[in-house]
């Protein structure tokens, strides 16, 4: 039996979402009807957001598998999505719940592994930066992960997550300030 997804919004998410584009609504309708191509387009549009949210929480070697789990869950439950404009936030909530579920069930150490899927080694300075990023409050680490890992612009982040541009800007700015402090980069500001 499938667990009920709890739709919890990250701090900073306001409710005055912009109307969804006609393209998104159409893709969601097609995907909810079982159209794999439409869902593939949704995957392409949102995979960076989901990857960023998971990477901010779970070991990098398992992120790719969890990304697939999240999208499979979304595909199965797409019929329960009432508001197309909420898709980004809804998908992000699935990703957060999946990460929480993973951490609760995993008996493995959740220390950062030194290798990516495929065996590629992670350099120590990258590990240090990721370790610091993961110590930030949820809203900051997710937003900064999207910006610094995935290369998304602030506008992209706002569009995908459903956050207002102002919230994204605040998260980026405050998160970056905290990240600098954690990394000992205090000579700016």
């Amino acid at each position: 039996m499938e667990r009920t997804i709890q739709l919890t919004l990250a701090p900073g998410v306001l409710t005055d979402r912009a109307a969804p584009s006609a393209g998104l609504t159409e893709r969601l309708r097609a995907a909810a009807g079982g159209d794999h191509e439409a869902f593939g387009q949704l995957y392409a549009d949102y995979v960076r957001m989901v990857h960023a949210i998971l990477l901010a929480r779970v070991p990098s070697c398992d992120v790719d598998d969890l990304v697939q789990d999240v999208f499979l869950t979304a595909f199965r439950r797409l019929g329960s999505l009432r508001d197309p404009a909420a898709f980004g936030g809804w998908l992000a909530a699935i990703a957060r719940n999946r990460a929480t579920d993973y951490l609760r069930r995993s008996r493995r150490e959740v220390n950062l592994p030194r290798a990516l899927p495929g065996g590629q080694q992670i350099e120590s300075d990258t590990l240090d930066a990721l370790d610091a990023l993961r110590k930030l409050p949820d809203a900051y680490r997710e937003t900064l992960s999207m910006r610094l890992v995935e290369g998304m612009s602030g506008a992209d982040i706002a569009e995908r997550t459903g956050m207002t541009p102002a919230s994204v800007r605040v998260n980026l700015h405050r998160g970056m300030k905290l990240l600098r402090e954690l990394l000992g980069w205090n000579d700016h500001e």
Binding site: R29, G33, G34, F39, V47, H51, L55, F75
Partner: peptide, 28 residues
């Protein structure tokens, strides 16, 4: 930071979706 953390960027392959048709949708 982009240089350091961008090494972790990854786009995993899209999952294989079950071959089925949804029976209900509030979107349509």
């Amino acid at each position: 930071l982009e240089h350091l953390l961008g090494r972790l960027r990854s786009v995993p392959p899209a999952p294989s979706l079950p071959e089925r048709v949804r029976w209900s949708s509030r979107l349509g």
